[in-house]
Design a protein around this nucleic acid. Structure first.
Lengths: 152, 152
DNA sequence: CAATGTATGTCAGAATACTGACATGAGTCA
DNA sequence: TGACTCATGTCAGTATTCTGACATACATTG
């Protein structure tokens, strides 16, 4: 109606839709995690550690899409509350491998169930074929975006 | 390798991939906008106003995926710097329709070109069919996630 | 072996976004 | 008309994340 032909056209932009979907997913996760008094970032960190025990602070940060400084303050909190442990001294270099405590594992279990329900809901109405199609397409986007990071 | 069968399996999770893609897109946008001294949120706001002149603060907030309080402080900044204008009094109700100034429009133009190049890069390697497939799939995810927001 | 480059953990301050709260205006309904 | 509900704009305080900076540890290279 009031399009001025500038060219991006948010209604048809895949980038905008990507942001919208990601935002909706985050909101849905926050909603089911709130009763457990856990934030999305907390959950991500614990889930990462369950699947890759011994991950370092920096590695966790990269995989949770935050800076290592942010992850560090999160880990300090989780450590103080007894959900994760880190050795006092680094076995090698400065890298401190982090692990879930039994308490952390218990805390994660409920959250995992809640979050899985969200993912199931998100996938509702999509066939197997569509799901693997979505998988490929998202990977393609990520790859293309990362490529030109330092390109002139 | 060290999968413990918990069930989510981030490597195969569409939710995780969605977050990864969204994060990569945001990083790419930040990179091309940095030389213009503009943040992604600034750009989003201006682009929204270009396509939908007269949008209110609350509407802008919803479409930029931030709270109306955050958008309000952003608008105050943009207004002070002369990129947007709002009437001193609301024509109807409390809603203040916001509009781009010529200066704001000029500022947006360069940013639009930069951001479009990112979107083009993201779409590289995808056929037309894949792009419309991605569009449908993302819309499906959004719809499914919004549905259960007030369920039990 | 020494120099350099890269990656890590961490502290401190700044920027950004959020939650809570309030008053105001419009719509609804009896 | 009056009570009620809802959405908006805005102020204030809180929380979260980021940027900048530093020391340390390993790998590479001459």
């Amino acid at each position: 109606m009031s399009q001025n032909g500038v060219g991006v056209d948010l209604d048809k932009s895949l980038g905008y839709l990507l942001k919208e979907a990601s935002s909706a997913l985050r909101a849905a996760m926050e909603e089911v995690l709130r009763p457990l008094e856990m934030s999305v970032t907390h959950y991500s960190c614990l889930e990462l550690l369950a699947q890759r025990p011994g991950l370092s602070n920096s590695e966790l940060a990269r995989r949770a899409f935050v800076t290592r400084q942010s992850m560090n303050v999160l880990l300090q909190t989780l450590e103080r509350e007894g959900y994760v442990t880190r050795p006092a001294e680094a076995p090698v270099g400065k890298v401190l491998p982090t692990r879930l405590t039994p308490r952390g594992r218990r805390r994660l279990e409920k959250a995992t169930v809640a979050v899985r329900s969200v993912e199931v809901r998100m996938l509702a109405g999509m066939t197997e074929t569509e799901q693997s199609g979505a998988f490929r397409i998202l990977q393609s986007m990520i790859h293309s975006l990362r490529d030109g990071n330092d390109g002139a």
